[in-house]
Design a protein around this nucleic acid. Sequence first.
DNA 1: CACCAGGCCCTAT
DNA 2: ATAGGGCATGGT
Length: 180
Amino acid sequence: MILGAILAQRTNWRNVELAIKNLKEAKVASLSALCHLGPKKIAPLVRPAGFYQSKSRYLYGLARFIMSRYGQIEKMKKAPLEKLRSELLKLKGIGPETADSILLYALDKPVFVIDEYTRRFLKKHYQRFFKKLKISDKDSYERLQKFFENNLPRDVRLYQRFHALIVIMAKSELRGKEKR
DNA sequence: CACCAGGCCCTAT
DNA sequence: ATAGGGCATGGT
């Protein structure tokens, strides 16, 4: 999940899977293994996911941080949400969406993930709210996030499923367009 | 061949 | 403070 969050930045999932397959075949698809490899060795493996020079550095940096600061994911899960979020955001290559994806899907923290699909979903089906939320502003991410969090029960499973459904809907709508 | 895919960093105003 | 360019591959 964590590796996927970085590899998937501005990249389709098929290519992310190719990169992860390479990591698995090289038996380095874990944070502890990546720490020992270093960015130079990681780069060729994640090449299919694109932007691989950057992403290999990001992966290495994140792996180093988690292993040195927490040692293992289970320990990390015990830290409070806000603390984890600000720590993740300080790392190179981790912005709000990537941080929140890790928090929600890997660490089971109740944070709503805002991505391009979520924005399109709001724009298409909730035009009225969408306008009020001014998505063009710099801090629109946090505003959109609060919109969901303030109107839904604070429940990790619900956030995970809700976001997943938005993605599934968006993709099926896209396919519909292509075929038409 | 042109375009796209679940961002984020860096730099020049 | 903030818009704009750069990063790169594989599929359609």
